[in-house]
Design a binder for these strands. Structure first.
Lengths: 337, 337
DNA sequence: TTGTACGCGTTATCAT
DNA sequence: ATGATAACGCGTACAA
């Protein structure tokens, strides 16, 4: 490997001079600088970031941990995070926990041993607490995305889940729906809890009755097996006229199930959900959704993180950004009145 | 930061002994090992991968560079790559070139300075040549994905683009279509060239006439502006009855355009394309496609890469994997006979 | 303006 | 079974 010493020898200067040329620090005569640069070119020199990291005690590496790389919400978010990181000269390591605590634990180990400068992460849920405490213990700055974790104080970017869910219920109620069921992610996830809460409040405000039977809790990720949800739906009597889904992936699973049961959307049942389904829809977007600003989650979260890293010694107050969801009315709701 | 010296001091052993415990190398008495382990626990010791990388001359980092993080083909591929990397104890750095040569160049710089152990990449196109030569010059093992680059010998995973395109034409021809147009990615991309070639051969085999007017070349990424493609379509006389799209994203763009023109698919015009649209489709998959094994691209490519890294000194012959595309017949083609 | 000595945290080599 | 020393490639502090 070509090192600064090889350059130094060939250019008849010291390694220090080469270092200064590379980093544009200190005073260097134009002649020396030109000579060193020429030799670097000739020898195809590339600085060794590993050595640099060791001495500088910073890697210029950031880590983004998401929970579902197949979900367009997270890929769009990743795009925002990547753009912001790049803008500030950081590189981005990348992981996908699959809503799985053990995979998340593995990634935390990687994060720690890699000595990344900071972490942007969507935690798997409340049980992620020890993972986050571990990051804190090791002084790794992090910003949470989309989900709060009780017991952790930190910078965070959230969507307005409660308000968004209420809007979805309002929309359904305005269309004349009275029996509205909800399919939601795990109650160990703060955003799922808030969506449920917003749903309940929306029901109450619209003077609709809520029953626990009308709630089905599962995972936010893709489902391998729809039979359990099928049994839930089977038992409902009377059938709901509409279903609110806690996120986009679940909405698709619900539609898959309805299809199996030969029920049409929205003729037989209406559907709304949180999060949009990404730009690459085969046909005109169909689902009525509370769309979140996925790109902004990543972009703003990353800016917060880098800001925090820049002032890691000061104890600035934690920042919390709450992004509103936008109701996009499309064709998955049937007017009943 | 807690180092092996801190552990060593507290455990009354040398740093070397601590290192041996960590890496399970050499002979250590059970008593010493237990003591060292206990101290490591107490002090929350985490090995410093940076220092390790410097001395071992390997980072255990791999890099995946794709061209469109919003495209489900690539996210699925990424998932495969990640799974394979993890299985072998590697971590994965991640970049998104956006089909853009300059972004690609930036990432090559990152790759070089980071001293990753290997790279898995979908090149932006033939002009990526100098970037790949740069990797070769610096002895960075890499595996190409989806696209060949003339002038570069290396391991590679390809889809059978020619055969896939021919199948799509066959399917259209069998449905009675005679005027088939093609919307394709840049001809500087090998897979786009092969798809065009497969299309032409398919036309010939089915005794259909091909005219250059019926070919529209653009970028494989999302289009900001459909007006140019609109003018192309406008000029066609007679109108094609079907369009073959070079990939999934372009197919969606074509459908967006047709929608603007109030043309229905497949009633007014039929559409087929390369690549599927991912698992999260709002409604039942609609497009008839030549589906590629996206996950396998990533998984097998990663295994090849790691295999290559393990034998980087030997000069084994380059491997080339060609994955077949599978025709999935759905509802975007109207039978004309 | 340029150079010397040292340290970042770890592992390999050689010694005991 | 354990330890001392050097080395990985670079940047900081200080000296010249």
């Amino acid at each position: 490997m070509v090192t600064i010493y090889d350059i130094a020898a060939k250019a008849n200067v010291s390694a220090m001079t080469v270092s200064r040329v590379i980093n544009n620090t200190g005073k260097i005569s134009d002649r020396t600088r030109a000579k060193v640069k020429r030799v670097m070119e000739e020898m195809n020199y590339v600085p060794n970031q590993t050595a640099r990291s060791l001495v500088l005690q910073q890697t210029k590496l950031l880590f983004l941990l998401i929970t579902d790389i197949m979900n367009p919400f997270y890929t769009t978010l990743a795009r925002g995070a990547e753009d912001a990181a790049k803008k500030h000269g950081y590189r981005l390591l990348f992981g996908n926990s699959d809503e799985n605590l053990e995979k998340e634990a593995d990634y935390v180990t990687t994060i720690l041993t890699t000595r990344v400068d900071g972490v942007l992460l969507a935690p798997a849920g409340d049980p992620s607490l020890p993972h986050l405490e571990s990051l804190q213990r090791h002084n790794v700055p992090f910003v949470l995305l989309d989900r709060e974790v009780p017991g952790i104080q930190c910078d965070i970017v959230l969507g307005d889940s409660k308000e968004g869910a209420r809007q979805l219920v309002d929309h359904l109620a305005a269309a004349g729906h009275r029996r509205i069921a909800i399919v939601n992610g795990s109650s160990s996830i703060s955003s799922a809890r808030l969506r449920l809460q917003g749903y309940k409040e929306g029901m109450k405000l619209n003077e609709l009755t809520y029953s626990d039977d009308y709630m089905y809790e599962t995972s936010f990720g893709s489902l391998n097996d729809l039979s359990d949800m099928d049994r839930w739906l089977e038992r409902l009597d009377p059938m709901p006229t509409a279903i609110l889904s806690g996120n986009n992936v679940l909405a698709v699973e619900v539609m898959r199930l309805l299809k199996q049961r030969n029920m049409r959307v929205p003729e037989d049942i209406s559907i709304v959900c949180f999060d949009d389904l990404g730009p690459h829809t085969e046909v005109e977007p169909f689902l009525t959704v509370a769309a979140q600003q996925a790109y902004q989650f990543g972009y703003m979260g990353m800016e917060m993180l880098i800001e925090r890293i820049g002032h890691r010694n000061e104890k600035r107050p934690w920042k919390k950004i709450v992004l509103p969801a936008e109701l996009l009315v499309r064709r998955s709701v049937r007017p009943l009145n």
